[in-house]
Design a protein around this nucleic acid. Structure first.
Lengths: 261, 261
DNA sequence: GAATTCATCTGGAGA
DNA sequence: TCTCCAGTTGAATTC
């Protein structure tokens, strides 16, 4: 169990010394304060004074949130150095990283609270549905897509890029499959056509299939005129398969494809 | 000045009632707790028990951080509903949004602290260097790119997409410029070639220029074989120009282009 | 709502 | 290191 603590510093100087000590101990620090942010690096930004929540993680990241929006106002992903000091009556937190050279400076005129966790327990994080998972599932269960399909290569390098799945259909045609976990737009069709063209230049004719849960109107139009096959796939069925709540049965190949209606 | 407060709840039930009240008041809430996360929606993830910092913003976002990394473990950008309750001895925070249907569930077995700001002052956020700024600067100072260049259109619509800058060079050729603030990859060249092709179909011949601080190897190769001109630009110089620390001088057109060496 | 593009994108894998 | 690509990408803008 992590050790935690909280303080309401009575002065900027006290806040600086508390935070400085916590940073050197690699604690997980949350500071509620009123400050301005200044960032200069790949881009540049600044704020007027406002209330912020500043998080400094044991791993060294610095994250500054404003009251709105899901994204932080400013951040520093992996900071080579975090400096905490008092300057001209301000609590100044500086996070500097090199390559790319970027500096984030927080100038706080009021510190509401400082709160921390020391030696936090991390726990595991398990993302169990993503494109990688689906690709591997389809690679090992290609009959979900089409009877008789055999996958011979996963992530086959082509021209500049990679074909998600590469194999051969029942009739011996080479098949090139592009997989999208979310609705596929016209860009996905173009990408696949690029691969087809790359194969054609090498004198190889392939059958392109775009697999996705849904397709945009423009994707359907381009696919029709360019000879790309579209195959809708029901992710929910795949999810259940991945979660072990279902099992691919022989002869149930269309179970994971949505009804045609 | 925001009203702030902090509490160390003595029980899960007390934590639930405190947080529930704060949510209904639209306070900015920070909870340090040990919990598991469960997310199901476009993807799915779960964690084992571990220490987390949970932020609930007045705007309704829910952000769950683990001890490492700049990104949150889980989040909910704009939540239709946040439910706080006690279930089986756990503090349960549920953030549900529809479209896409996604559910984030936090099950806390230990709450270290609850901290909040009511009516936080927001302040302004001003990003003063981004592609938009650079594009406008080049549009009004095209001689930075090339003597005699005249820009006639900014963000000119073309087939699918927009040409960043469109104009005419000293010799009367139509010029199509694609601008990247960061190193340009092969995709940028392809994008530009797409525009060239779109113009060609309309019987218009254009001179394509890709402007960026740097180019990937594959971008250079494709550019060479496809007739796209690459123009390196020094962003630092542009930054200074934007910041008013420098001024475009007549006859100093190459000042903002890196040396050829 | 759909489509497109930018982002300090971040993060990961591979060469 | 660079390069490429997925991401619960988010967010803005346009139609």
């Amino acid at each position: 169990m992590a050790k935690w603590g909280a303080e309401e510093p009575s002065s900027i100087g006290e806040a600086a010394s508390i935070i400085s000590r916590l940073v050197s101990r690699r604690a997980w620090i949350i500071v509620a304060a009123a400050c301005i942010n200044e960032y200069e690096g790949r881009a540049a930004s600044k704020t007027t004074p406002g209330d912020k929540v500043i998080m400094i993680k044991p791993s060294g990241s610095v994250i500054v949130h404003g009251p709105r929006g899901f994204k932080p106002q400013n951040w520093q992903p992996d900071t080579s150095a975090i400096h905490v000091s008092e300057e001209d009556g301000f609590l100044v937190i500086r996070a500097v990283r090199r390559s790319p050279r970027e500096i984030l400076t927080l100038r706080c005129h009021k510190v509401y609270t400082v709160q921390w966790l020391e030696e936090p327990e991390e726990g595991d994080f398990w993302m169990y549905i993503n494109e990688h998972q689906i690709r591997d599932l389809l690679a090992t269960n290609p009959s979900i897509l089409e009877p008789g399909l055999v996958i011979t290569r996963v992530e086959r390098p082509v021209e500049p890029g990679f074909v998600d799945l590469y194999g051969r259909d029942r009739e011996g045609n080479l098949v090139v499959i592009e997989l999208k976990r979310v609705k596929a737009g016209v860009e996905a069709v173009k990408q696949l056509l690029g691969y087809v063209e790359a194969f054609r230049r090498k004198g190889v004719r392939v059958r392109p299939i775009l697999v996705a849960p849904d397709f945009t109107e423009s994707a359907v139009r381009l696919a029709e005129t360019s000879g790309v096959e579209l195959k809708r796939i029901d992710l929910r069925g795949l999810y259940e398969l991945l979660a072990g709540r279902a099992r691919p049965r022989r002869g149930s190949l269309e179970d994971f494809l949505p009804r045609e209606d």
